[in-house]
Simulated assay, not measured.
Amino acid sequence: MLNKVVIPVAGLGTRVLPASKSIPKEMLTVVDKPVIQHVVEEAIAAGMTQIILVTRSGKSALEDHFDRNAELEQVLEAKGKDKLLASIKDMLPRGVQLISVRQDEARGLGHAVLCAAELTGADDFAVMLPDMLIDNSDDTRDFAAMVDAYRQHGRGQVMVEQVPADQVERYGIVDCGGQTPAVREHAPMQDVVEKPPLAEAPSNLAIVGRYILPGKIMQLLQSTPPGAGNEIQLTDAIKTLLDEGGALDAFTMGGDLYDCGNKAGLLKANVAFGLKHPETSEELSAFLQGLSVK
C-alpha cells in the first residue's frame, strides 16, 4: 500500500537569502502557514501516513512546527480563541507519523531520496519537493489524483506540466513518444532528460516535483554516478529504470504551480493563496486593485 512520502528539506535555500540565513526556507510562510505545512497537508490529503523528512543540522524548526505546544494551546483555550487553537492543534492527524533522517552532505536530489531507503524499504513511495506549491482552483487536488491513478493502474507516476520553450533547460523533461496527456491524465514515459538544451529536448513536459516511484528506484540510486552539477540526480535513476523496462507514466497537473524556492515564486504564491484566504482576500484584492490604477 502506498503510504510513504519522502520530502527532501536539507537544502540551504540560497535563492531566498538573506531570509533563509537563520530560518529554514521551508518555514517561510505563504499567508499564515509555512511552505512545509502546505506540502505536508497535501500529502496527508492524498492518503500518506508516513511523512519522511530528509533534513540536516539547523533544520529542527521543521520538526518542532509539527509538535504539540501545550502552553500555547492552553493560552488560546483560556482566551476562547477556538479558531486559532484549531489551526495549531493536531497538525498531524491520528495515524500520521512524521520521521526525519539526516543527509550528511548535499549531493543532489537523488542522494537525498536515497537517505530514506531504510525507511521505505522495498515499498513504492512518493517524493514531494517542498519548494513547489500547487494551487488547485477546483475540489480535486493534483497529487491526490495522481495517487488515485497509481492505485488504479499500478504504475509509477511523475507529475508534469507544459512549459514555454525558453524554460525547458531549467527542468527534467520527459519523453512520452510525442504524446501530451490531457489534464489529470497520464501517458507512458519512454525517456527523461535532465535540463536539456532546447534543441535536444524531447518535449516541453517538465517534471514539477511530485513523484510516485517503485521501490526498485532505491537500488538504482545506490549505483547512480554523479551527473549534472556533479550531483546524484533522481532523473538519472528514473532513466535507468525506463531503460531496463520499468513502467512509469507522466501525469499532467491541472493547477497552478509556484516555485517558493525563489523570491518571485514565493511572492506570487502569497498573492494567489492570499486572494483565496477568508481573512485576507477582501483587503488584499482591494490593495492590488489600488496598485493597478496608480
Rank of each mutant, 00 (worst) to 15 (best):
M1K: 12
V6G: 10
P8A: 09
V9P: 05
L12G: 12
G13Q: 13
T14G: 01
R15E: 13
L17F: 02
S20F: 04
K21V: 01
I23R: 14
L28N: 06
V31A: 07
D32I: 01
Q37N: 05
V40L: 09
E41A: 10
A45T: 02
A45F: 01
A45P: 00
M48A: 10
L53F: 11
L53K: 07
F66V: 08
N69L: 10
E71I: 07
E73L: 07
V75E: 12
V75C: 03
A78Y: 02
A78G: 04
K79E: 15
K81C: 03
K83E: 15
L84D: 14
S87P: 00
S87E: 15
L92T: 07
P93L: 12
R94Q: 13
G95N: 11
G95S: 10
V96H: 06
V96P: 07
Q103G: 03
Q103S: 15
E105S: 14
G108A: 12
G110T: 07
H111M: 12
V113K: 13
C115T: 07
A117T: 00
A117Y: 00
A117E: 14
E118P: 00
L119M: 10
T120V: 15
T120A: 09
G121V: 05
A122K: 14
A126Y: 04
A126N: 06
M128V: 03
M128Q: 13
M128R: 15
M132A: 05
I134K: 06
I134T: 09
N136E: 13
R141I: 01
D142R: 11
A144G: 06
V147G: 05
Q152D: 15
R155G: 00
R155P: 00
Q157D: 05
V160M: 08
V160F: 05
E161H: 04
V163K: 11
P164L: 11
D166N: 15
D166K: 11
E169W: 02
Y171M: 07
G177D: 05
Q179H: 09
T180C: 08
P181N: 14
A182M: 08
R184D: 04
A187L: 08
P188V: 10
E194T: 07
P196R: 14
P196M: 13
P197F: 10
L198H: 10
E200H: 09
A201S: 15
S203L: 03
L205F: 05
G209T: 02
I212R: 03
L213N: 09
K216H: 09
Q219Y: 01
Q222M: 12
T224K: 11
P225N: 15
P226I: 05
P226W: 02
G229H: 12
G229D: 15
Q233P: 00
L234H: 08
T235M: 14
A237K: 11
L242Q: 11
D243H: 08
E244P: 00
E244T: 07
L248E: 03
M253P: 00
D256W: 01
N262Q: 14
K263F: 01
L266R: 04
N270V: 03
N270Y: 04
V271R: 13
A272C: 11
F273K: 06
L275N: 05
P278S: 14
E279N: 12
T280V: 04
S281M: 11
L288R: 13
G290F: 04
G290S: 10
V293Q: 14
